[in-house]
Write a protein that binds this DNA or RNA. Structure first.
Length: 569
DNA sequence: TTGACCACGTA
DNA sequence: CGTACGTGGTCAAC
């Protein structure tokens, strides 16, 4: 029987659980009669099998974590959805399964434990069942050691189907089930996109990068001795301004502080923004600040970093995570997300290709309008620049209006915002009430969920206290909660946008090579630049409609065709 | 070796 | 008294 015959008639988007074992692939789905259908394919090239099924049936692929090298348009990532449902970042199949079945986390078995207890447990136990009598998944199944036969692979495929059903049930119990399911799907695809970002890397003009580094930290050192002498030379420029008798270690903040004190500058810490006003006071300050910049470049983004993370093919690669941290933003390692602006000049499209760049304009206030459902703020969000109508409404200038809105979202208590903040309360009571409710939850240590259902854990707080430290800790948790709902919802919308773009540009041989919170960089063949631009802009309203069908908030992204990242903005 | 803190880059 | 993240430095505690 052929694979397609075995799978039978399935609708586009129907769930197909995929298990890859040493001798082939098993695909499993729930049949019309509710009984699982399993298809066994003996192959050494599971990627080819999956791609063929993708071509012909376009299912929603179900897996615990994305498979490498497959190009699919829909998936359900059990671990990504686990992070959505239960919050946090660290997870694994055993944990996800336990949480879905209300099993105690502490009773999760480990491989070691298995050996220890083997004498007493194999009696009456069916090791061919991936689920233990106590309900937990067997560790050796999770590790893949039990996938040697098609029969076992089928059982494992069915386990994923059961986990999916549980997750769906729990998502549908959330306040906004439709939003949660939509977000679960885009978060799943985002995990796959992360794998692709990691594999593809960011195109770098290596000679240009080396030139930028050299202009700041000197030419590439040939030996370890060169490294040391160059370092000492850089240090000496600063130390020339330091009187004898005080500490001379520029990398030790305490000693730097005493150096500054020795020339009559007393500061509580030595951060750049604090030293900035003293630039004119003594030449040491300027020398130190220049040194800091070069030191940062040479330590974090120096030649070592280049050699370690930029491949022979001129691609900068780092690990990506689809929903790290509190609110579910994407993160990336190898400095991809905090590349200094000056180095972005070396991020250059390859010959025959260009970058299509776009970012989400004023995404946070727009998302606030959407998730709070404040009609007046939603109306303001119809404008290209939503701070203008807000300013008019409050009777203040645009800059003040912007500060007030941002201050409300981030929980700022000081600064210009005072009077304007009270204006906001009157003009946009629903949005402000939404933020205030989040703030209260944070203060009391009550866990919250983003619009799309992501659980954000709060640190438990003690009851109202007069202690200054505890009160400020509670206030910090309030700000954290406020921000998490906005940042988290914005991250959901961003990912929905990104994966929509991903799906629609692949036919044009274009790839997303950078995601930066509200910013998208697509590497595209030059002849498709215009079409990709239209897709990038069009995908935003499409994604926003899917994310929140009832909202009339306008989201803004203008795509620009550029050669290097530094041309953005 | 590990974790705290500082410092600083990005959004 | 705005939030988040990753990175690399020093230091103190192990």
């Amino acid at each position: 029987m052929s694979l397609m015959e075995c799978l039978g008639p399935i609708g586009r988007g129907e769930l197909v659980s995929v298990v890859v074992g040493p001798s082939g692939v098993v695909l499993a789905r729930v049949g019309a009669d509710g009984v699982d259908v399993h298809c066994w394919i003996e192959t050494e090239d599971h990627v080819a099998v999956i791609n063929e099924v993708e071509q012909r049936l376009r299912p929603r692929w179900l897996w615990w974590a994305p498979l490498i090298d497959v190009r699919v348009t829909m998936c359900w990532d059990l671990l990504a959805v686990d992070r959505l449902l239960f919050g946090g970042w660290r997870t694994e199949p055993a944990l996800a399964w336990a949480k879905l079945h209300n099993l105690s986390i502490d009773s999760i078995p480990s491989m070691g434990q298995l050996d220890l207890l083997s004498g007493s447990t194999d009696e009456g136990e069916d090791l061919d069942d991936p689920v233990r009598p106590d309900g937990h998944l067997r560790p050796e199944w999770i590790a893949g050691r039990s996938l040697r036969s098609f029969d076992h692979m089928s059982k494992w495929g069915s386990i994923a189907l059961r986990a999916y059903e549980r997750q769906l049930t729990q998502l549908r119990e959330l306040p906004d089930p439709a939003a949660a399911e939509t977000v679960a799907r885009s978060e799943s695809l985002a995990e796959l996109m992360c794998l692709e970002l990691q594999q593809d890397g960011l195109p770098i003009d290596v000679p240009r990068l080396e030139a930028i580094l050299a202009s700041s930290v000197g030419t590439r050192p040939a030996t370890e001795a060169d490294v040391i002498s160059a370092r000492e030379r850089r240090d000496q420029v600063v130390l020339a301004h330091v009187p004898a008798g005080v500490g001379r270690d520029l990398r030790n903040p305490a000693q730097v502080r005493s150096m500054l004190r020795s020339v009559g500058i007393d500061v509580s810490d030595t951060r750049a923004w604090r030293l900035e006003p003293f630039r004119g006071a003594h030449p040491l300050v300027d020398a130190l600040l220049v040194w800091r910049k070069a030191e940062r470049l040479s330590t974090t983004y120096g030649f070592n970093w280049l050699d370690q993370h930029v491949g022979a093919d001129g691609r900068l690669r780092g690990a990506w995570s689809g929903s790290d941290g509190a609110a579910g933003r994407m993160t990336a390692q190898a400095g991809l997300h905090n590349l200094p602006g000056e180095l972005r000049d070396a991020v250059v499209a390859e010959p025959g290709l260009v970058f299509v760049h776009a970012d989400l304009g004023q995404i946070e206030p727009r998302v606030l309008a959407a998730v709070s459902g404040d009609a007046a703020l939603c109306a303001a969000a119809l404008e290209d620049d939503m701070y203008s109508p807000v300013a008019a409404r409050l009777g203040v200038d645009r800059a003040t209006a912007k500060l007030a809105v941002l201050g409300a979202m981030y929980g700022a208590t000081s600064g210009v915002a005072g009077e304007a903040l009270r204006g906001l309360e009157r003009a946009y009571p629903v949005a402000m009430g939404f933020l205030d409710a989040a703030d209260k939850n944070g203060r009391y240590g009550i866990d919250i969920r983003t619009y799309g259902g992501r659980l954000v854990h709060m640190r438990p707080q003690r009851a109202a206290s007069a202690d200054a430290d505890e009160r400020s800790a509670a206030a910090a948790q309030g700000r954290y909660a406020r921000n998490a709902l906005i940042q988290g919802a914005a991250a959901e919308l961003f990912k929905a946008w990104a994966v929509t773009v991903r799906g629609r540009i692949s036919a044009l041989d274009a790839r997303i090579v950078m995601c930066l919170h509200d910013e998208l960089l697509v590497h595209a063949p030059r002849q498709h630049a215009e079409e990709v631009s239209l897709i990038v802009e069009g995908a935003l309203s499409e994604a926003a409609r899917r994310w929140m069908p009832t909202s009339n908030v306008r989201y803004v992204a203008v795509a620009r065709v550029i050669e290097r990242w530094s041309e953005a903005k």
